[in-house]
């Protein structure tokens, strides 16, 4: 082993982040804004490892766009041990943060292209880190179409922001719920796959980004293939695995040849379409 290779002695040591704001998004999801000791300097689509002292660590998507200051934003669903504790925290409490990790998106690759975003369930959480800079510089892109799906109106996320984004002339937003569940709802009802067939997309200039529950990918990809034949090199999928280290060492998030934590969690579909464990 080379003695002069760059080695960050603090790779496994979290930096401290203080919670400066918490918002309840839905029954199960909370929005956290943290102030870190140094800027995160992340790319869209990356994630951080969040430590609750004494409890453990888990991978959480970054939901804010790239920024200069020390702010980190996350939306966390209460699913297990650590996230349950996270939900019990208050403003002023601190967390440990490592990262940012993962390959993320290269925003420049989307310049001058049409963009189709399909976000099911929590899919909008990581994709917001891509959408915020995209909307802020929307003139640099072609038509931006955003399809969001949620189980019911009570589970929708970032609706105020979606309403603002809709005002841009080249942004189209289709919001769907599986069922209105007796709530008032001004969007559409159905699955995220439903509108795809009737979209007008130029397969040569459209970039597609998918993020949602595992079952969603297969059906959206089938629809895209049936109606638009967009090349796999222009499609990105954001996958989820349980990571322990976030830095390609622990082996847990491996998807056939690929490491979700380093090669992903955002993958170009052409890179993983032949991986049987990829969209399983």
């Amino acid at each position: 082993m080379s003695k002069d290779a760059f080695v960050d002695a603090g790779l496994y040591l979290p930096q401290t982040g203080r919670i400066v704001a918490i918002e309840q998004c839905t029954v199960n999801e909370k929005f956290f804004r943290l102030e870190l000791t140094r800027p995160l300097q992340h790319r869209p689509g990356q994630f951080v490892m969040v430590t609750v002292p004494g409890m453990g660590e888990c991978a959480i998507s970054i939901t804010c766009g790239p920024r200069e200051d020390n702010i980190l934003e996350m939306v966390i669903r209460r699913v297990g041990n650590i996230t349950a504790v996270l939900h019990g925290l208050e403003v002023g409490d601190t967390l440990g943060i490592r990262g940012p990790y993962g390959a993320g998106f290269d925003l420049e690759e989307f310049y001058q292209r049409d963009v189709l975003i399909v976000a099911g369930g929590l899919g909008l959480v990581p994709l917001r880190s891509l959408l915020l800079p995209m909307i802020a510089a929307h003139q640099r892109f072609g038509a931006i179409t955003i399809i969001t799906g949620a189980r019911s109106p009570a589970e929708t996320l970032f609706r105020h922001e979606l309403a603002d984004w809709r005002e841009k002339e080249n942004v189209r937003i289709i919001e769907l719920v599986d069922s209105t569940d007796h709530y008032q709802w001004d969007g559409e009802v159905g699955m995220v796959t439903a509108p795809i067939g009737s979209l007008v997309l130029d397969k040569n200039r459209t970039m597609v980004v998918l993020c949602g529950p595992p079952v969603m990918y297969k059906f959206v990809l089938l629809e895209l293939e049936a109606h638009h034949q967009i090349p796999a090199t222009q499609i990105f999928v954001d996958l989820e695995r349980r990571m322990r280290c976030g830095v390609g060492k622990c082996g847990h998030c491996q998807i056939n040849q690929a490491y979700c934590c380093q090669d992903g969690p955002v993958f170009r579909y052409s890179d993983i379409q032949n991986y049987p464990e990829g969209l399983a």
Binding site: G10, Y12, G248
Partner: peptide, 15 residues
């Protein structure tokens, strides 16, 4: 272990 980012504890032991 040396692949970026290098594992600091392995590195420390190894050298």
């Amino acid at each position: 272990m040396a692949a970026a980012p290098a594992d600091p504890y392995y590195h420390q032991r190894r050298v």
